[in-house]
Amino acid sequence: DMKIVSNNIFEKSKGNALTSENFADFIRKNEINEFYITGADAIACVKSTVFNMCRENFKVTVISDGITSYDKRKIDEMLKYYEKNGCKIITMNELLNSE
């Protein structure tokens, strides 16, 4: 059901997106340093990716209504964790209205 808009598709086998060598090479070669994060597991993959991207000094923004988790009660806690680690939190409407 996903609309493919690019041939730049990267697979990962660990939580942190930066562990995908192809993805890491792509962002390095294209000098990409700003990311908008969404994801299906706020307390695992999203958490690890946000933490590691912030640690690498990327500009990271999480779309708060674009994440979920098997335990939805922990999403607010994760949003605070992301912010504490240097990530900005916005909604999809805020992103769309900022342009």
Score class of each variant (00 low, 15 high):
residue 40 A to G: 13
residue 97 N to A: 12
residue 28 R to V: 02
residue 87 C to Q: 00
residue 66 G to V: 03
residue 73 R to Q: 13
residue 63 I to M: 00
residue 42 A to P: 11
residue 92 M to Q: 09
residue 96 L to S: 08
residue 67 I to K: 00
residue 92 M to W: 08
residue 21 E to F: 05
residue 27 I to K: 06
residue 51 F to V: 11
residue 2 M to P: 15
residue 14 K to T: 15
residue 37 I to W: 03
residue 43 I to C: 09
residue 4 I to E: 07
residue 62 V to Q: 04
residue 19 T to G: 02
residue 74 K to N: 09
residue 20 S to Q: 01
residue 20 S to E: 03
residue 82 Y to S: 00
residue 37 I to R: 02
residue 56 E to W: 02
residue 58 F to V: 02
residue 88 K to M: 10
residue 19 T to K: 01
residue 24 A to Y: 09
residue 64 S to I: 08
residue 13 S to G: 14
residue 34 E to F: 07
residue 63 I to V: 11
residue 28 R to G: 10
residue 11 E to Q: 07
residue 75 I to A: 08
residue 99 E to T: 10
residue 38 T to Q: 06
residue 2 M to F: 13
residue 37 I to E: 01
residue 7 N to Q: 14
residue 39 G to K: 02
residue 67 I to F: 01
residue 10 F to C: 02
residue 31 E to S: 03
residue 53 M to G: 00
residue 8 N to E: 11
residue 90 I to C: 06
residue 7 N to W: 05
residue 98 S to Q: 05
residue 29 K to T: 13
residue 1 D to K: 13
residue 85 N to V: 00
residue 97 N to M: 11
residue 38 T to H: 07
residue 26 F to S: 08
residue 61 T to V: 07
residue 38 T to R: 04
residue 57 N to R: 10
residue 20 S to R: 00
residue 48 S to Y: 05
residue 78 M to T: 01
residue 24 A to S: 12
residue 16 N to P: 11
residue 74 K to W: 00
residue 13 S to P: 13
residue 35 F to E: 04
residue 57 N to S: 10
residue 35 F to A: 01
residue 44 A to T: 14
residue 19 T to I: 09
residue 68 T to E: 01
